[in-house]
Every structure is written in C-alpha cells, then in structure tokens.
Amino acid sequence: MTVARAFGGALRMHLALYGLRVSRLLSSLLTPCVMAAVGALLLGPAAPGDALARVLLGGGLVGMWSAVLGTAAFTLRRENDWYGTFALLVAAPVRTSVVYAGYLLGETVVALSGVAAGIAVAWLLLGHLDLPLTPALAISLLVAAITIAALGLVFAAPMILLPILTRWINALDYPVWILAGLMFPIALLPAWSRPLSLALAPYWAAESVSTAARGAPIGAVAPQWLAALGLAVAYGAIAIAAFELVLRRARATGSLVRG
C-alpha cells in the first residue's frame, strides 16, 4: 500500500509540475499533431490503414520514448538543482525507484494524450480514419506506455551516479526506437539485430499496437502483451537493484546531495 501511494503521489506530482503546464502540454500535443497532419496529408485518404497507423501510432510511441528518456535523465537535475528535493526523496522510506517509476509513467500519460490528439487531427483532416479504435488497441497503447516507462527506469539509475550520461541521451534515444520497431518494422533491420529487438519490451508492445491496429481480436494480441509485460517486470527488477546499487554508491562517495 505504501508503495502504491508513493507511486501514485509521484505520478500526480509529475503531472502537476510538468504535464499539466500549458507550455509543456502544447509541446507534447503539438508535435504529434503536426506529425499526424503531415502524415495524413502525404498519404491521403486512400492510404492503407497500416501505413497511417505506423505514422500515427508509431510516431506517438517514438515521442513517448524520447519524453521518458528525457525525464529519466533530467529528473535528478530537476529534483537536485531546481527544487533541492532529491535528498528528501532518498531519505523517505519508499524506494527511490518507485518515485522515478511514478514520474516516468506520468510522462507516458502526457505522451498518450499526444497520440490521441494526433489521431483526432488525422481524422479531422481525412474525414474518416481506417483505424479500428478497439479495446485491444487501447490496451496495447497502455502496455506500450508501461514497457517504455520500465525501460526508462533501467536507464535512469546510472544517470544518478553519472550525470554526464545525460549528455548522451540522443545517442540512447535512436537505437532503442529503431531496434524496438516503434516506427518501422524490424524486418528492415539486419538479422544480427533481431535478438536485441526481441529483448526489448517496447518491441513486443509496438507489435501488439500494430496487430491491434489491423483489427485483430484480443486473443491474437494477448501473447504479445504477455511478452511485453513479462519483460517489463524483469526491467523493473533490474531497475530496483540498479537504483539500490547506485544510491549506495552515491552515499559512499558523498555525491548524493550537492551543495
């Protein structure tokens, strides 16, 4: 219960600090809307649903991953340098990884609203949309949000110990969304990269989004959800251990609290 409260509190605080700010919301909504508009106008009303789904949903997932990676990287700066609250978070009885998980999932909530806005824009421009808005698709997007947040959590831990890694987030951004096939199928990638893709939880989530966007029933998508969520749980376990290790190391070196 304590963990659930802390997680929910962190998610709400993240939304209150950033997600619900007009400037931030505009950037989170505007980019997917512009991408959706360009995609819809380029592909036109005769475009097959699969192609448009790749643009609308894949683009949304790419944006979600970038936003989550950014939050994983800059949370330390926000809490330590801007608000001076990082020490208080670490000194709370709940694991710091739970707080980060709340922040990262909060970020995906904002990104999901961008996906929804992009779909609405495409529908308005084209007059119709060959995209089955089914429960399977909604659940697939939620699963994608969870897997992307879980992967972000794994990346967040080392950035606490080595803030210099935050300078390399662009280098971490592209390989993940390319390997996870968020924007285009991994069949286009060399064969040697296939095992890496299969080990990425967002790959299975993106596959489920693609499958659901083709109108597949829940039964056909469920195995992909299970694979995605199974890997996400493994990521969660790795992240918890990594956070404990990193925070212990930071307590030992004295780098936990600046100033």
Partner: peptide, 20 residues
C-alpha cells in the same frame, strides 16, 4: 526542498504519500 510550482497542500500531500 519544496516544489515551488505547486501549492503547499500539494507539497504536503506528496510527502505524505511518500511516507505511506
């Protein structure tokens, strides 16, 4: 040590959540 962009109530609510 406080979140300036939100209210005192929200700050306290958050820390209350962190302590379960």
């Amino acid at each position: 040590g406080l979140y300036g962009r939100v209210s005192a109530w929200q700050n306290l609510r958050y820390f209350a959540n962190l302590y379960g």
